[in-house]
C-alpha cells in the first residue's frame, strides 16, 4: 500500500566540492575534485518500521542521515516525507511542521548535549521552538513526563549533562528528540559510543518507545548484531551506493550481494568456532572510486562487465540487489 510509506528517498546525491582554492588550481592546473559521498541512493520506509543502513566507515551512511535531516544540502534527488517533497515545500509553516515531525539522535551523547544547559532546558528547547506548550506549567509537566518515559527521574531535570553517564546522556538525547512529538526519528549510531550492557538498555528503550508511540526509525549503524536486533528492513551501503535492500530475515539467511556475504563473514563470533577469513584490502577512496561496480576490486566474482558497467538495483522477490553476478545468475 503506497500510503503506508511515510518516507521515500529517490536517487539522492550528496557531493562535496573538495578542490583546492581557485587560484591554487589555476597555478597548478589542477582539476576540480568532487567527493561523491552519496551517489544515487533510493529507499522507502513504511510507517512504524525500522529501516537500517549498514556499511563500513566512509561508505556514506552518516551523510545520508545528515542530508535527510537537512544538516547537509542535497546535490540532487528527492526526499519525500508523507507525500511532501522537501525540496518543493516553500511555505514556512509547512517547513516548521516537517522539522517538528522529524528528529535526530546523534552518535556521541558527550558532544550532542550543551554542557552549560540544565537537562530540563535541553529537553524543553524543541517544545519552546515549536510553541508546543500552553504555559510554563504545561512545559514543565511535559518535560517531567519525557524524563519518566526515558527512565530518568524528574529531579534529573535540574542537573547538568556532566553529572550523567554515557547511557543516561543518551536517554536525555532521546527525550529531547521526542519532545516535539515527532513521528520519524533519524538515529545515527545511537549506541556505538556506549558499553554493551548500556547498549542493551538503550536498544530496549528505543523498541519500547517505538511500540508505544508508533515511531518510524531510520537507523544507522556499523554493527550487524545491533542491526539484526532492531531492524525490519536493511540497506547495505558501499561507497555511497546501496548494494542490497532486503527484509531483515533474508539478509542473514540468504545474503545476495557479494559484499553483504563478506560483511557477514567478518562478524566476530562469540562461540569462537568460525575462523573468519580476514578480507583483503579496504574500502577505496570515494574521491577516485573504481569504475563500473565500485566493489569489483575486492569481489571474488568480478568479471569484465563489472569493471565497465555500473549495476543498477534489480528486484528479486522482496529484496533489491545491485550486482551483475546475481543478475546473470552466476551467484
Amino acid at each position: 500500500m503506497p500510503n503506508d510509506i511515510i518516507f521515500t528517498v529517490n536517487n539522492l546525491k550528496v557531493h562535496f566540492d573538495i578542490s583546492s582554492p581557485f587560484i591554487t588550481r589555476l597555478i597548478n592546473g589542477a582539476p576540480k575534485l568532487v567527493l561523491k559521498a552519496v551517489d544515487g541512493l533510493s529507499f522507502r520506509i513504511r510507517r512504524g518500521e525500522t529501516f537500517s543502513l549498514v556499511g563500513e566507515s566512509g561508505c556514506g551512511k552518516s551523510t545520508v542521515a545528515r542530508a535527510v535531516s537537512g544538516l547537509y544540502s542535497v546535490t540532487s534527488g528527492d526526499i519525500i516525507i508523507d507525500g511532501q517533497n522537501l525540496a518543493e515545500v516553500k511555505n514556512k509553516s509547512k517547513i516548521t511542521d516537517i522539522s517538528r515531525r522529524m528528529q535526530m539522535i546523534f552518535q556521541s551523547p558527550y558532544a550532542s548535549l550543551d554542557p552549560r544547559w540544565r537537562v530540563r532546558d535541553i529537553i524543553a528547547e524543541p517544545i519552546r521552538a515549536f510553541g508546543l506548550a500552553k504555559n510554563k506549567e504545561d512545559e514543565r509537566s511535559q518535560v517531567e513526563k519525557l524524563l519518566r518515559q526515558v527512565g530518568l527521574s524528574e529531579r534529573d531535570g535540574e542537573k547538568f549533562p556532566h553529572e550523567f553517564s554515557g547511557g543516561q546522556r543518551q536517554r536525555i538525547s532521546i527525550a529531547r528528540a521526542l519532545s516535539s512529538r515527532p513521528e520519524f526519528l533519524i538515529c545515527d549510531e545511537p549506541t556505538s559510543a556506549l558499553d554493551v550492557s548500556v547498549q542493551a538498555q538503550i536498544l530496549n528503550l528505543m523498541t519500547e518507545l517505538q511500540d508505544e508511540l508508533g515511531l518510524t526509525y531510520l537507523f544507522i549503524s556499523h554493527d550487524l548484531a545491533v542491526i539484526d536486533h532492531i531492524s525490519d528492513w536493511i540497506g547495505v551501503m558501499y561507497l555511497g551506493r546501496v548494494c542490497e535492500i532486503t527484509p531483515k530475515a533474508a539478509l542473514f539467511s540468504n545474503p545476495l550481494h557479494p559484499y553483504t556475504r563478506l560483511l557477514l563473514e567478518t562478524i566476530p563470533d562469540l562461540k569462537g568456532n568460525n575462523k573468519r577469513s580476514p578480507l583483503e584490502g579496504e574500502v577505496p577512496s570515494p574521491i577516485t572510486p573504481p569504475s563500473g561496480c565500485t566493489f569489483h576490486p575486492r569481489c571474488p566474482f568480478a568479471k569484465e562487465r563489472c569493471k565497465r558497467e555500473r549495476p543498477e538495483l534489480i528486484t528479486l522477490g522482496e529484496s533489491q540487489v545491485a550486482c551483475h553476478a546475481v543478475e546473470e545468475k552466476r551467484l
Binding site: 553517564s165 547511557g167 543516561q168 554493551v196 550492557s197 548500556v198 547498549q199 542493551a200 538498555q201 536498544l203 530496549n204 523498541t207 519500547e208 550487524l224 548484531a225 545491533v226 539484526d228 536486533h229 542473514f252 562478524i267 562469540l270
Partner: peptide, 24 residues
Amino acid sequence: KGLMDSIPQIGQNLKSLPNIVGSM
C-alpha cells in the same frame, strides 16, 4: 553473566535484550 547476555547476537530474534538494571 549479565554482560554476556546483553550482547546482541545475530538470529536471536528477541523482543527485548536482557540487560543489567542500573549502571556501574
